[in-house]
Design a binder for these strands. Structure first.
Length: 571
RNA sequence: CGGGGCGUAGCGCAGUUUGGCUAGCGCGCCUGCCUUGGGAGCAGGAGGUCGGAGGUUCAAAUCCUCUCGCCCCGACCA
């Protein structure tokens, strides 16, 4: 492709809309343009990269035995109603009313649609197992789209769904997808961490997230650098905190804390560290108030809490309920004298002589001890892992970092096949629900994540596998007939005879402009036809990533490029 | 959805507080000269409903009301 005939609008300055580097670079390098909040147009260079990613994904899905399908973006609401996810998605669902008054959704994901199809078309164990996938645009009305294509209202997802007759089959299907994901991300040149993820309120099932470590990532990665334990924030556990030895119970004491409600306020006022305090949170569970005790410096993990309580729906109680239950305004709740069920986080059970609310206005209690002053009904793990926690497996220090979620694999079990009645007859003639798995990859996110981890002050650094073009030929002076002739010759040689994707910068621009642009758009290899060429007939090959240069006579260029390809293809 | 901010040329911005020349600057773009190894120089030029609607005024980018869009923080997020 000749530069002058494509559309590659590079920018010197960063647009004000962009906050993070990958977003800025995608705009500056002419990959994308925003059309509206959370929706981006892919320009030629962006489209080439997108297609590179899609090709890799498709090849590896096929290799793993998955079958490609193409499902509609439009979805009827009744399917989502049947699975119960209409309320789960809620306002995230983008819907519209057609001329007949029928309300239709733009699909946020496709579990229901694919299950509906399989339910209708598959009746026998002989037709299983089956894994289908598609590459489709998904729609979600994100409350706040941000970071360019990392969180948008419209995004491309590869979603796959496996159907098996038994759990052993699911395990095989899951493993095949898991391994395919590793190959896909390896081929894309991404460094990634696989973390255990929470499987929501279904319980007992397995889920893994593929994360690219990055400080702009919106997901939290908890891991142990010693034993390799890794999990996301919802899922991660910490080693139980051991109770202190030789504690003597101090006498319980009331203390006046006028208008001090938050942990921070009370901590400052009484000069007690938050880790010596206990928060009492009142939750509504099945219409009944429950007190949850958590250490002052910890946070309640509602995913764990709902699992512990066996409830999918729980919520913090409103102010009226709290005042009714505790006999005090919000901010002064405590377990002593409370008549509701008391659930304590493990860390609280290890505390002695702690500070907490007195269930009286403007009063807190000092030296509270469970067993003596109140009884805990249940000790459980219901908090998020915090800095300073220990690994639940090996008790080493734990590392908390951020990452971009680029893939998620999930053993669903029978959630959707039960809801939508997708059953089959087994060898014994017995009707059984299909066992499902689902597997997603954020295609656009792969691109943004790659740029986040592969760039420098000059621009993007593409791996060979994702580069929009492998090579850019730069004739320094396009008015020099010999240079142009050579540029065309090399172009044909590489394109026609070696199947290499080449961009020819035929613009009548000063060399500096062309070099800067080539660096910005991140083409792995530059072939420069300039001063050297007029002097010694040599061409210069320069690598984007390392900056290494090689002087090569024209008839050796192809061989040299091919050997560089081999080198660049290795991780 | 709460809080904050911003909409002026393709991009980045000044001008708005205190209303008043023909609405500016840098980059980019067009023409010519010159130049050709890391975003050159000179000269000339095109490009604006100042987000939109209404109002106040002799006069509005500037003041008032409404409205649309966008960004940031928070809440939310299979």
């Amino acid at each position: 492709m000749k530069w002058s005939r494509s559309l590659i609008p590079t920018l010197k300055e960063s647009p004000s809309e962009a906050e993070i580097d990958s977003h800025k670079l995608m705009i500056r390098a002419g990959l994308i343009r925003r059309i509206t909040a959370g929706a981006y147009a892919y320009l030629p260079l962006g489209t080439l990269v997108l297609n590179k990613v899609i090709t890799i994904v498709r090849e590896e899905m096929n290799r793993a035995g998955a079958i490609e399908v193409f499902l509609p973006a439009l979805q009827p609401l009744n399917l989502l109603e049947e699975s119960g996810r209409l309320t789960v998605f809620g306002d995230d669902l983008i819907t519209f009313e057609d001329r007949h008054g029928k309300v239709t959704a733009l699909g946020p994901t496709h579990e229901e649609v694919v299950t509906e199809i399989v339910k209708n078309e598959i009746n026998s164990y002989k037709q299983l197992p089956l894994t289908v996938y598609q590459i489709q645009t998904k729609f979600r009305d994100e409350t706040r789209p941000r970071f360019g294509v990392l969180r948008s209202k419209e995004f491309i997802m590869k979603d796959a769904y496996s159907f098996d007759g038994d759990y052993e089959g699911l395990n095989k299907s899951y493993k095949a997808m898991y391994e395919a994901y590793c190959r896909i991300f390896d081929r894309c040149g991404l460094e990634y961490i696989i973390v255990e993820a929470d499987s929501g309120a279904m319980g007992g099932e397995v889920s893994h997230e593929f994360m690219v470590p990055s400080n702009v990532g919106e997901d939290v990665i908890i891991r142990c650098l010693t034993c390799g334990y890794s999990a996301n924030r919802e899922r991660a556990e910490a080693a139980p905190i051991p109770p202190e030895d030789h504690i003597t119970f101090q006498p319980l004491k009331e203390v006046s804390t006028p208008d001090k409600r938050t942990i921070q306020e009370v901590s400052d006022f009484l000069q007690v560290k938050p880790c010596q305090m206990v928060k009492t949170m009142i939750y509504m569970v099945n219409g009944q108030p429950v007190a949850v005790l958590i250490r002052g410096d910890h946070e309640v993990n509602e995913t764990k809490l709902s699992k512990v309580l066996g409830q999918e729906t729980l919520a913090l109680a409103d102010h009226n309920t709290i005042e009714h239950v505790t006999d005090a305004p919000v901010g002064f709740a405590g377990p002593v004298g409370l008549s509701v069920k008391i659930i304590a986080d493990q860390a609280v059970s290890a505390l002695h002589n702690f500070v907490t609310g007195a269930n009286k206005p403007d009063v807190h209690l000092l030296n509270v001890n469970h067993g003596r002053d109140f009884i805990i009904d249940k000790i459980v793990d219901v908090r998020y892992v915090a800095k300073g926690d220990k690994c639940p497996r090996c008790n080493s220090g734990i590392d908390i970092s951020q990452g971009i979620e680029i893939g998620h694999v999930f053993k669903l079990g029978t959630k959707y096949s039960d809801a939508l009645k997708a059953r089959f007859l087994d060898a014994g003639g017995k009707e059984r629900p299909m066992i499902m798995g689902c597997y997603g990859i954020g295609v656009n996110r792969i691109i943004a994540a790659l740029i986040e981890i592969s760039r420098d002050q000059d621009g993007i650094i593409w791996p060979l596998s994702l580069a929009p073009y492998h090579v850019v030929i730069i004739p320094v002076n396009v008015n020099d007939a010999k240079s142009i002739h050579m540029a065309n010759h090399i172009y044909d040689e590489l394109t026609l005879n070696a199947g290499i994707e080449v961009l020819l910068d035929d613009r009548d621009q000063r060399p500096g402009v062309k070099f800067k642009d080539a660096d910005l758009i991140g083409i792995p290899i530059k072939i420069i036809i300039g001063k050297r060429f007029s002097e010694t007939k040599e061409l210069e090959i320069k690598l984007r990533k390392s900056g290494e240069t090689f002087l090569v006579p024209p008839d050796e260029v192809r061989l040299r490029i091919e050997s560089l390809f081999e080198m660049l293809s290795k991780p």
